[in-house]
């Protein structure tokens, strides 16, 4: 789905956003990009959205070289991406329903299509009762759900989330992550940039770690922090989650939902 080949992004000035990044993400994968602030996570996201151009190297998404996309094609490319940000990027003067509908109409969807899709996606994201609320009448978690609903309303094959839980408390974060896992189970490839160690450790998904613009680790079922030992051994060593945390996790990640193959 995503191929980075020796991608470097140098920002004007001395800062290097990303240096020699090479990695692949397969269709249907769920990947965490981790690393401290300034390590280059957002740079990767921006390159994928084609909001920025790499200084060198090649980026392919679904087999297509992003450098070959003409300016006019970019909007159509973006319609195949869902994007979620730390700051939600909701329009404050529009209701929940209108925020999602607005995004749909921006892609040229018909009224009929909008009326059919918007309530569906809002139900799916647990916002059925908040349709006519304005963003400032919602909690942070609910706002982020609206933003996820907007990103996923067209069922894009690729969903990018840049610190989606950065503004949320741990409990709310888990809810958002659960939503992203569910989206991933529908076959959508999901890339999440985060520095929330707890979430990453609990998820046991693929982790790509960045440090100062370089990829320093890429583990299939990694933890947030790097380790010399095998993942299994490390797992046994970490202190067990608190009871409260465990209860939340159990209720939000029911064990009986098998991951869907894609």
């Amino acid at each position: 789905m995503i191929e980075f080949r020796d991608v470097t992004k140098a920002y004007p000035g001395t800062d290097v956003g990303l240096e020699g990044a090479t990695f692949n993400v397969r269709r249907g994968e769920f990947v965490f990009l981790v690393g401290s602030t300034g390590s280059g996570k957002s740079t990767i996201m921006r390159l994928l959205i084609k909001e920025r151009e790499p200084t060198s190297g090649e980026i392919r998404v679904a087999g297509r070289n992003l450098a070959d996309l003409k300016h006019k094609q970019v909007p159509y490319y973006r319609r195949n991406l869902g994007v979620v940000f730390q700051d939600f990027k909701l329009l404050p003067n529009r209701t929940v329903y209108d925020n999602v509908a607005y995004a749909l109409s921006a892609t040229g969807a018909s009224r009929k299509e909008i009326r059919a899709k918007v309530p569906d996606i809002l139900r799916l994201t647990g916002l059925a009762t908040k349709l006519h609320n304005y963003p400032d009448q919602l909690s942070g978690g609910e706002q982020q759900r609206v933003s996820v609903a907007r990103a996923f309303v067209n069922h894009p094959p690729l969903l990018l989330a840049d610190e989606p839980t950065g503004n949320l408390d741990p409990k709310t974060s888990i809810g958002i992550m659960q939503l992203l896992y569910r989206i991933n189970r529908t076959g959508t490839t999901v890339v999440v940039a985060t520095h929330d160690a707890q979430l990453v450790n609990r998820a046991r998904r693929r982790v790509i770690e960045l440090h100062a613009g370089r990829i320093v680790r890429d583990e299939a079922t990694g933890l947030y922090a790097p380790t010399e030992q095998s993942t299994k051994e490390f797992g046994a060593m970490i202190k067990p989650p608190t009871d409260e945390f465990q209860a939340i996790m159990d209720s939000t990640f029911p064990a009986d939902v098998p991951p869907r193959e894609s």
Binding site: R78, A103, T107
Partner: peptide, 12 residues
């Protein structure tokens, strides 16, 4: 910004 992100065309 949002329109660009969701793939609205320039003219839109």
């Amino acid at each position: 910004e949002v329109m660009k992100l969701v793939g609205a065309t320039d003219w839109f």
